[in-house]
């Protein structure tokens, strides 16, 4: 079940996967499959459905879900060989998120080793990212933003943000600590002068 307010989670569930109906679907033939000629969708017809609908219907045994294209054998072999170079973003933006959701679908065949495969893929790609994400050239940054999945991109931008913050700090001459508590916009008056917090005493000889 999707987290209600998580947009990424909702988008991940929006990805389609091929399914085969076990039962006849009344009156929705044209809605589900535009190439269907009759009003009713006959049993055994294959349709691409978003995950949330496939999940719902497979629990009621109305259809049998199949692995989406990006988790088929061919791509899996490709990933096992050179995980770091494969463009996963092009295949599915929410590769891991959707993959993890697919693991929970009991009707799916080939899902036994799916979680293990996802973990292995993530681990080998993570290793690649580890050495390049804190210190990297503009070119790598650009290729990374095209190749990484959403989850990986999140990690990458976090690493970039912290190394940027570090560089900003180390090259700055003065350091001002900004308050975490949002101050009242209205200026506070204190005996005619602007009230300021003094964290440290002023020493004069």
């Amino acid at each position: 079940m999707a987290k209600y307010y998580d947009v990424d989670d909702i988008l991940a569930e929006q990805e389609t996967l091929p399914t085969v109906f076990n039962t006849e679907v009344y009156a929705l033939g044209r809605a589900l499959d535009p190439s269907c000629d009759s009003e009713n969708l006959p049993a055994g017809s294959s349709v691409n459905l978003p995950f949330w609908l496939a999940d719902f219907l497979s629990h009621r045994k109305m259809l049998k879900p199949h692995l989406p294209k990006f988790l088929k054998k061919r791509l899996r072999d490709e990933l096992q060989g050179e995980a770091g170079c494969v463009d996963l973003r092009d295949r599915c933006k929410f590769f891991y998120e959707l993959g993890r959701k697919l693991c929970t679908l009991s009707e799916l065949d080939g899902s036994e080793d799916l979680s293990e495969f996802l973990l292995n893929t993530f681990t080998s790609r993570f290793k690649e990212m580890l050495t390049t994400s804190h210190v990297c050239s503009n070119e790598t940054r650009e290729t990374y933003s095209r190749v990484l999945t959403n989850e990986e991109l999140e990690l990458f931008t976090r690493a970039q943000a912290s190394s940027k913050a570090f560089e900003r700090w180390i090259y700055s001459k003065s350091t001002v600590i900004s308050s975490r508590i949002k101050r009242n916009k209205r200026k506070r008056e204190w005996e005619g002068q602007e009230f300021r917090f003094r964290t440290r005493p002023v020493v004069s000889a």
Binding site: S133, H134, L155, R158, A159, S162, S163, F166
Partner: peptide, 9 residues
């Protein structure tokens, strides 16, 4: 501090 964000996530 530099590694924290990346590693935790």
């Amino acid at each position: 501090n530099l590694m924290r964000n990346f590693l935790l996530s």
